[in-house]
Amino acid sequence: MTTVIDVQNAVKRYGIGDSSIFALDGVSLKIEAGEYVAIMGPSGSGKSTLMNIMGALDNLTSGKYFLDGIEISSMDENALAVVRGRKIGFIFQSFNLIPRTTALANVELPMAYQGIKGAERRKRAEAALAVVGLTDRMSHEPTELSGGQQQRVAVARALATRPALLLADEPTGALDSKSTHDLLDLFDQINAAGRTVVVITHEQDVGERAKRIIRMRDGKIISDESNIRRAS
């Protein structure tokens, strides 16, 4: 097995002096290819911060992060863009759709940046939207969609590029139980196809679907164990 994510003694500090906060306070973590990991913990425990580091969206105060064996801080702008576009599918806690742009165009966007041609792009975007059940909402803009629908567009956008690593920050936060169930089934399929999935969640039953559960508190990992019920 190859190591996809290798976080070594990661520290992320916000602010300076007495008022500074350690969002990550010495986190070390390895995730192998094909794993399905849930990260859980109370609000403010540093889950999103860790996820942003893993997604190469933010940098560390100290410590190291290797993605597929390459240290992120050593990469230049273009290499980072390629990593973010091709390797990683990121589902944000706050959706982060491009405003005043249709669902379809939003889903097409990462593929456009990868240079995938118009027709192919459209086909894949439509397929991804169909998977999340939004075929009839493709030409709607984010403000014309409900929170759950926006979240599903964000999921479709992350899936359409067929990333090797799927990072999802509270992907079910705005979904009803039926949609949650569908999405988790989808994650299972993706994982079964050999892709690595990392999900942040508050919800116990969402975490239970993963094969490994990491718990955080105050910027530290307090437990890291395989999920006996799911691990094969």
Partner: peptide, 8 residues
């Protein structure tokens, strides 16, 4: 957002 989803 554009950068996060891979825009150079």
């Amino acid at each position: 957002i554009r950068k996060a989803i891979g825009a150079p």
